[in-house]
Design a protein around this nucleic acid. Structure first.
Lengths: 122, 122
DNA sequence: CAGCATCCCATTAGATACTG
DNA sequence: CAGTATCTAATGGGATGCTG
């Protein structure tokens, strides 16, 4: 994340936007939350969804969101180890915001994407 | 910003969330956009709203959002110089997402704020 | 007023190796 | 499987000084 742990309290109007962003910010948090919206997942399951994330990054992102109370971490005492990550009640309240972002992204991403297939498709 | 210019196109499902976040991410973009939602503003006007931002940061954030097509920059040829920043049409389409974030922030910010006045108010 | 240029330090995040 | 530890490259972002 960038502004992480910086949601300083020199809050001006508009600050709550920042506060919200500071939580879902962090290179992978948005997508992670979005995937967890669908269902709880195990560590490597999430990792596979993200493909290019390093385990170090995934760990820190998950830990931070856990600390922020957005997700829960459930360890199953078994071999091989199993750890489930799921949205907390608080995390679920982000759903509208997450969907608003996704909706926007779906509508407008093409504006920023080089649209790879149209390049050599001519 | 963090993931800035990284909305790489190894897009998995959920990626559009990232794409959207990558644009409003960046320490100040969220708040700036939010303020511009109200009305166009001049450079120092925005700066005053943000209070702790450096002009270097403000400049880069504005430039990036301009490059992303989210805001417009209008220079008035006069002395002293005047430059207005305003949301573009595209920028305006972010309004629902921005409001969703603000709504969430307003409802839940107290969870993350030390609530300064309650500290010595025992 | 609204910037740009430079210097510089703090933080971030990738790669790699090891573990219960 | 689900991590932790360490080391390092890259980036972010503050401070300061100058300009049309």
């Amino acid at each position: 994340m960038t502004r992480r742990r910086t949601h300083g309290f020199d809050c001006a109007p508009g600050c709550s936007v920042e506060a919200a962003l500071s939580l879902i910010d962090g290179k992978w948090k948005g997508v992670i939350l979005f995937h967890l919206l669908e269902r709880p997942m195990r560590f490597n399951e999430i990792r596979r969804k993200l493909a290019t994330v390093t385990q170090r990054m995934l760990t820190t992102q998950l830990r931070e969101m856990e600390a922020d109370g957005l997700i829960t971490r459930t360890v199953f005492a078994q071999v091989p180890p199993r750890v489930d990550y799921a949205l907390s009640d608080l995390g679920r309240t982000l759903e509208p915001a997450l969907h608003a972002l996704k909706t926007w992204g779906d509508s407008n991403m093409h504006l920023f994407s080089p649209a790879p297939d149209t390049l050599n498709a001519s």
